[in-house]
Design a protein around this nucleic acid. Sequence first.
DNA 1: TGACTATATCGCCATGCAAGAATATTCTGG
DNA 2: CCAGAATATTCTTGCATGGCGATATAGTCA
Lengths: 114, 114
Amino acid sequence: MQKIAENPVSSRETLQKIAEVFRVFSEPTRLGILQALRARPRSVNELVELLDTSQANVSKQLRTLFDADLLHREQRGNQVFYSIKEEMVYELCRIVCDKLNRRARADAEVFFQI
Amino acid sequence: MQKIAENPVSSRETLQKIAEVFRVFSEPTRLGILQALRARPRSVNELVELLDTSQANVSKQLRTLFDADLLHREQRGNQVFYSIKEEMVYELCRIVCDKLNRRARADAEVFFQI
DNA sequence: TGACTATATCGCCATGCAAGAATATTCTGG
DNA sequence: CCAGAATATTCTTGCATGGCGATATAGTCA
């Protein structure tokens, strides 16, 4: 009878692919872009104004997000509008924020000895 | 009448905190540890055997995960057992895997012209 | 075509971090 | 206390990447 390996760990390549998705989210500027796009599609310049960083950097981070298949890209005239392609973006961020809020509340309870 | 800023972007510090959580997940070794712990708590040595990396590296990644408040730590004799503290770990990974699978399927459909 | 605007890319620097080797620490049994 | 096992830490190296300035590319309008 064949022994069934119990819960083997995924291959390095699979783990790497998953890790790469998370890596895209692991940067404040990119998270700011995603948040700014929640309201509506925005041009690169709009994002530059909202995010307090250089246009070059916004373009670069947009490319990272786009390559990760998280954004749509639409050219209108000489402007380019980006928008969210994957709604799961917000699901991920919501889960993390919930966790941070829970942790902050727990910390507060300890601190104030509630 | 005061103008309401529409969907302002969070402060850099807030975005940074969220980004740090994602960064913890952005590394194959750490994801492998989380996956290995899904079955049950495991000692450091068990994890070393499952993950094909050095003991020093496993300890280091465990510390990162522990500091991120994702793991429990329990000492038994001279062994230390780690286990998952936050079930949201699996929710996050499931969402990302779903996305990767959907993308892979979409790629296949294009490739094979289904 | 030429000027202007919007976006993308390139080269560079500084920082952060994964990983290994060596060592330190902690615990157990004798 | 000592030896050995299990785990943690320190130090170093190499690489990836965020950010900026400068520049290139693309699109619009006169």
